[in-house]
């Protein structure tokens, strides 16, 4: 069964890049344009993993993760947090909000696939 990854980023190109890499590797993806959008999708779609950006309109990454974790049935769903800054404080905040791990932009498709396959199990 294909596993679905929810990809949250306000940049269409980054979204598409992540999506196409994951799809080529055999995952299904759903894209969301911001935290608000992602939350409404997550309520119905039940993704197997989430990859989310931090800086987004309406609801940012940290806010989304907190709200996501508050939804029923999201315990055990890995969330990977994306950001352009490699700041320790932000990392701590993400972890506290409920993110499993962290990736710093830019990253290449190999790294992305490595991370996703580790998180979801090959």
């Amino acid at each position: 069964m294909k596993r679905t990854v929810l990809v949250v980023d306000d940049s269409a190109s980054v979204r598409r890049l992540i999506s196409s890499t994951l799809r080529a590797a055999g995952y299904d993806t759903i894209e969301a344009t911001d935290g608000q959008d992602a939350l409404s999708i997550a309520r119905t779609a039940r993704p197997a993993a989430v990859i989310t950006d931090q800086n987004m309109p309406n609801l940012d990454g940290l806010g989304f993760i907190r709200a996501f974790r508050a939804l029923p049935g999201t315990a055990g769903v890995p969330v990977i947090f994306l950001s352009t800054e490699n700041a320790e404080t932000l990392k701590q905040k993400a972890r506290a909000a409920g993110a499993l791990g962290w990736m710093t932009k830019p990253f290449d498709d190999r790294k992305l696939l490595n991370v996703v396959s580790k998180v979801l199990g090959a």
Binding site: G76, G98, A99, V119
Partner: peptide
């Protein structure tokens, strides 16, 4: 486990 980490995956590796 709550955050979706997979100890079994680590052990497999």
């Amino acid at each position: 486990l709550t955050l979706g980490g997979r100890p079994l995956g680590v052990l497999d590796e």
